[in-house]
Design a protein around this nucleic acid. Sequence first.
DNA 1: TCCCTGCGGGAAAGGGCTTTCTCTGCGGTA
DNA 2: TACCGCAGAGAAAGCCCTTTCCCGCAGGGA
Lengths: 357, 357
Amino acid sequence: MATLSDVARRAGVSPATASRVINGSSKPVTDELRERVLAAVAELQYVPNAHAQLLARSHRSAVGVIVHDVSDPYFAEITRGLQRVATDQGRLLMICNSYRDPDRELEYVELLRGHQVAALILAGSGYHDDAFTRQLNEKLAAYEATGGRVAVIGRHEHSGDAVMPDNRAGGHLAGRELCELGHRAIGVVAGPRILTTTTDRLAGLRQALTEQGRELPERRIRYAEFDRDGGAEATARLLDADPGLTAIVALNDSMAIGALATLRARSLAVPQQVSVVGFDDMPIARDVTPALTTVRLPLVDMGVRAMSLVLGAGTPAPRVEVLPAELIRRDTAGPVPAQRRETADTVPRARRADAAS
Amino acid sequence: MATLSDVARRAGVSPATASRVINGSSKPVTDELRERVLAAVAELQYVPNAHAQLLARSHRSAVGVIVHDVSDPYFAEITRGLQRVATDQGRLLMICNSYRDPDRELEYVELLRGHQVAALILAGSGYHDDAFTRQLNEKLAAYEATGGRVAVIGRHEHSGDAVMPDNRAGGHLAGRELCELGHRAIGVVAGPRILTTTTDRLAGLRQALTEQGRELPERRIRYAEFDRDGGAEATARLLDADPGLTAIVALNDSMAIGALATLRARSLAVPQQVSVVGFDDMPIARDVTPALTTVRLPLVDMGVRAMSLVLGAGTPAPRVEVLPAELIRRDTAGPVPAQRRETADTVPRARRADAAS
DNA sequence: TCCCTGCGGGAAAGGGCTTTCTCTGCGGTA
DNA sequence: TACCGCAGAGAAAGCCCTTTCCCGCAGGGA
């Protein structure tokens, strides 16, 4: 690789001058030398060594981002928001996928710190795991102690700046909607128990049911991976255990799509026999058939805000921005079927079996 | 940030010794010093400056990847394959989104070169743009001249290693299937004209129709963005111009989903009134209703191979691996409706209008 | 004419790390 | 006892840039 001094030598100038020309320094350089340098750069196809530059400059510019998986639409949307702000400010993003592995998350914090990022954004659910949380906070604190900025998206455990989707309110919205449609036998297709996102959404849902004088017994909840196959599988287990279900809440849209697949496979009409409500409103939600009723989170906006937080001026007190959830009514949630209007819980066993057939 | 000399000072050793301990150098260090260094590292929360390391080591390890958009399922799958191999070999990936902007692509080549990546992988369609292609090749050649490895995925223009999905054969597969189902009035919802992927798939499709004694006139093709909305819009234009269409080929699955949306909006039953064939077989294809008949490309495998090519031993002659396309029959393509069995081209105007209603 | 100013350019000092080279001191052999 | 060899540690030379500091020179004012 050609280096700066190669360029300088070829142009017959000092490395200092070459550097000034290349970086458009404020220090003036005569046109003649400038041209010679530029010509040398072109001839040698010179590209500055980014690492040497970063070492020489004190200025840190890149921003590190840790998500569970960029290719997951949830994170893809958040990332879009992050990118928008970063690009506007000429920042480079380093995006890392933790694939929901806490250890990998820890490793990436180190890695990004080593890469001298100016700020760090952790997006995605936290874990119910005290040991992990403590370790993470230690690392984050160490980073912040050296001037690094940190913001989290959708995580409680961090003490600094945070952007929080209102998962609990979203869960509540889904629950209330279904109650108002008359459903009583509601099953839940949930993500991993260890994720705070799962428990937050679940908590909101449970609260809504309780407010309506109903319950969400643990046997009506199935935990699985937060993806399509997890949703399909959890739905199957739910249905096997409780054929009388008239509604299913999936704790994200991918799982909802899996749920829809299982219902279709079992020839259960949606929403005539079983209603389904998803969560997140990812782009595909409107394109499945029937179009998915779901709880929308302002994903892009979450990204925008987190990045703004981290690139803007710091404040002594941590800022927490809670972004609201919104119910998007489409076609998968309908009134409870007539023959099941009574609560499945109180229906005699025999009739319940009937109703399921 | 704590530096290596901070660690060394605290441990009462030289930076050289500290470095040896931290990197597990082959040079032996007594246990006592080793412990002192490790203790200092922990106390100071020391993380080596990655840029300084990269500068000092001659060894280059990271691999640069340029895709159109990682959050697009097509690239997400390819990236999964790339990651798999990279992770196995302990390589870090730097992934950049060009958002189908040729200039940005050029910039990223420079950027990644500046970051001293050991190899470069360009995934995604090439452009019918000679000036761009020349520039790109120049940059790539300069990079290769300094020992960089390059592989492309799905691009013709590069003279080196390449992994090529058989887009043409895939187009052919889609065309033949539709012909065998009796369709004659086939419309195409195509991606941007400037992309070689579009033209390759189109060429295969056209060839299949020609072989069956049919034609693919330009008026039956609509070019739009390679996404859901592009597909929806192009389908609408196609239908407006030619209501007698009995089949639509979408040149990728996102567009196919858009096509499905438009057909649903117009109450045209799929596949009873109109058949649809997609391309790529992205994961969601099986979950839309009706499930999408499409042409599968081994996306993950494409990524795996490209990365293996680039990390394996170089060969004097460039290697081109062509990966086959496969037709996945699901539920969106069916036999041509009875009343339209004759070709739309030969049906009198009046009857064509009837048929469309 | 002399001095001061200011402009354009180069020399050189880092920035944080790796690695070669050098040095010290010890044990072992003749 | 004298010498050799080697293990283990440190000194220092880079890696490739940026940027401060300094210098020479030309032009302008007194």
